[in-house]
Write a protein that binds this DNA or RNA. Sequence first.
DNA 1: ACCTGAACACCGTTCAAGT
DNA 2: ACCTGAACACCGTTCAAGT
Lengths: 219, 219
Amino acid sequence: MSVQATAIKPGSARKSPPPKPYHHGDLRREILCAARTLLEENNIASLSLRAVAKKVGVSHTAPYRHFKDKESLLAGVAAIGFAEIGSQIARAVEMHPGDPAAQLQEAGQRYVQLVMDNPQCVQLMFGGILPCDDTYPDLRAAGDLAFERLKMIIEEGQSSAVFKQDDVELLAMTAWSCIHGLSVLFIHGSLDIAASTTLEIHTFTKAVTATLLNGIGTG
Amino acid sequence: MSVQATAIKPGSARKSPPPKPYHHGDLRREILCAARTLLEENNIASLSLRAVAKKVGVSHTAPYRHFKDKESLLAGVAAIGFAEIGSQIARAVEMHPGDPAAQLQEAGQRYVQLVMDNPQCVQLMFGGILPCDDTYPDLRAAGDLAFERLKMIIEEGQSSAVFKQDDVELLAMTAWSCIHGLSVLFIHGSLDIAASTTLEIHTFTKAVTATLLNGIGTG
DNA sequence: ACCTGAACACCGTTCAAGT
DNA sequence: ACCTGAACACCGTTCAAGT
């Protein structure tokens, strides 16, 4: 039943069976994955490095071979989160070529869904636990990329005169604020909406996005 | 040099010098205050109950007389935060009587300022560490009150036909999302704005609020 | 009633040691 | 190179005991 079926590539059997360093193929990825899971299962305050190590089946000091410290591991998880936001925006763009208003609408829906699915990760990404500066370049880069994708939607909208000719950063920031704020208030349960269905959340998001589009639109 | 100057109130010296229960007048408030300070000095992950107790000058188990556990103490701090949001909104209303658009603008500015001044507390309030349900009634009540104040602005705007006749909760939620999201992105340092002056932040906030007002305004 | 000190199980991190 | 186990200082929480 082992996955280690060790299919021997003919002709390559000369030197060594694949390195298999001690226990794991790539412990780094496994640690990140386990951390992500444990993070969402509880909350950020109660995520422990030792628990992550145990889940992976490795001694509690092993993660230190791959991450400088706990914060560095958290930064890795957060970077994955930003990468996913970037991917979702890219997908939204693909779905509605030539229609920036629809792209923004779609991206908003996907953003909210992502936050609802990974609330604790979002908390980690935006919560002020991780430093904002360039301590973790990968984290910074992933965040910047997501924001660039959003700005491209805005720029396309300005080119086709659907969005007003304002500062791009300003409009992008406005859009992100609106959707991000909405998502955060959702997971916080500020309204009784927390208990409501996904459908209602989508309806709500659509309404908010409409208002946003109304605000940044031309005329 | 002791503060314990013990000025004896003439005529009241009969029974007892003021109760002075062991050490502190009201340890509960002192603990909340110390927790708030320590929270902002570091971050939420590294706030420890023992450090709070030490700062107050009391044994590390003393807080358990006033709070069921650490989470309960955090809930107390968060409730103070929500109360302050409510106060700021109320002040914004007072400043611009009869002008709901200006009230919303003013409340937005004050909200952003409050978040900038207490980023870690905001993280605590909205971060998903505290449960959303009715575990902490005071916390819930403080949050609800702040939201009610915001809704009153919206309703006044609808009465005087400056805001469109949409669902009140929807418009209020849209406004809060927009401002809250902006604040969070500010403290996250998503843009290079993090390093910029308070003035620029105010300008930015004004622009976003204008877009918001444009979105929720009448025709 | 209010506070203390010892005790317990847990945590992050370091380091010498093993393969 | 990669992983382990012992060790350290810290943490949240409980509990018998003190005033």
